[in-house]
Simulated assay, not measured.
Amino acid sequence: MRKKIKLLTTITLLVMFVLSLTSCGKKQDGQTQNSENAGKNEPIVIKYPSFQVGVNSYAPVLAKNIEEFNKKYEGKIKVEIEEIPGDQAYVDKMKVLLSANELPDIVYAGGYNLLDPALEKNAVVDLTPYLDADPEWKAMFSKEVLEFNSRNGKIYSLPNERQVIGYFYNKELFKKAGINEPPKTWDEFFAVCDKLKAAGITPLSMDTQDSGWLTSLWMNSMVGTNGDNGNKLFSVKYKYKELQK
């Protein structure tokens, strides 16, 4: 028998939307179409390239969200997904489009450091006035989230989801190792892993279907909460050479 429990910390994924300026660079098909449709009462088309398609585990969720959005705003706004299978293929294409000043309407920036290069080319929209005009929408995001997605006091991107990291555990194997309760803190978690290993049981089996994303999040959390050194490591942004000192 297996049971799923949630870790205590709710995290905000480093997944942000960045809106490209239609006035920057060449007009794209969707932008040209929107200009032509302006006087025809046809819906505004928003181009959204994504790697969360095909066999990606998030693909069904994204498809459902887009379907519900298009239904709600039918006749006014329509989101069209461009499928780009694979994280790296997506990132590479966005960098090429950025270099050519041809970013799509929405970019899934994630943890791929796409926001800052886009800002250098003046290719993103300041979302601050829109958030200030809608306090209810702004209240959905924590102070830390808004600060993380801000540059020079202006908000340029927003997370599109929040998740709770959880795990499944095998009650029979826990009992065999003499473990009565599932861990609720990192210290308890590591202690449980040690007990399982001592009992000849492999402690963990991590996901690798997509990019090992959850595995990466766990590793970051473990390092980031490992005293002053771990905290220092994640306080340095995009400065690998500084970390080597």
Results as ranks from 00 to 15, higher is better:
Asp126Thr: 10
Leu158Trp: 03
Glu147Val: 00
Pro43Ala: 05
Asp132Tyr: 11
Gln52Thr: 13
Asp134Ser: 09
Asn149His: 07
Met222His: 06
Leu119Val: 03
Lys237Ser: 08
Ile44Asn: 07
Lys197Ile: 00
Val96Thr: 14
Lys154Met: 07
Gly166Ala: 12
Phe148Gly: 01
Ser142His: 02
Asn231Asp: 08
Gln163Val: 14
Ser142Gln: 00
Asn101Met: 15
Gly75Thr: 00
Gly227Asn: 02
Pro203His: 09
Lys245Pro: 03
Ala139Tyr: 04
Ala59Lys: 05
Phe174Asp: 04
Asp134Lys: 11
Glu42Lys: 15
Ser50Ile: 10
Arg2His: 04
Arg162Val: 06
Leu98Cys: 10
Ile84His: 13
Ala63Ser: 14
Ile155Phe: 01
Ser35Ala: 15
Tyr240Thr: 13
Ala199Gly: 03
Glu172Lys: 14
Ile201Val: 06
Val53Ala: 04
Ile77Ser: 04
Tyr90Ala: 08
Gly227Ala: 03
Leu103Tyr: 08
Lys27His: 12
Arg162Cys: 02
Ala38Met: 11
Lys143Ile: 00
Tyr238Asn: 15
Asp92Lys: 11
Leu131Ser: 01
Asn160Met: 08
Asn34Asp: 13
Thr128Lys: 06
Asn149Asp: 09
Ile106Trp: 07
Lys27Ile: 02
Phe174Ile: 07
Gln52Tyr: 15
Lys232Tyr: 10
Val45Phe: 03
Lys184Glu: 11
Asn220Gln: 10
Leu196Lys: 04
Asp228Ile: 09
Asp87Leu: 08
Ile66His: 06
Gly230Tyr: 04
Glu102Met: 12
Gln31Phe: 07
Lys3Met: 04
Lys138Thr: 02
Leu8Cys: 08
Asp134Phe: 11
Phe51His: 11
Lys241Ile: 06
Ile84Phe: 06
Glu181Ile: 06
Glu172Tyr: 07
Trp218Glu: 11
Phe168Met: 03
Leu146Pro: 01
Phe17Lys: 02
Lys78Ser: 06
Ile155Met: 00
Lys232Thr: 12
Phe234His: 07
Gly75Phe: 01
Lys76Cys: 02
Tyr112Val: 00
Val192Ser: 13
Lys138Gln: 04
Lys121Ile: 01
Glu144His: 00
Val45Ile: 15
Lys72His: 04
Leu127Tyr: 05
Asn220Val: 08
Leu19Ala: 09
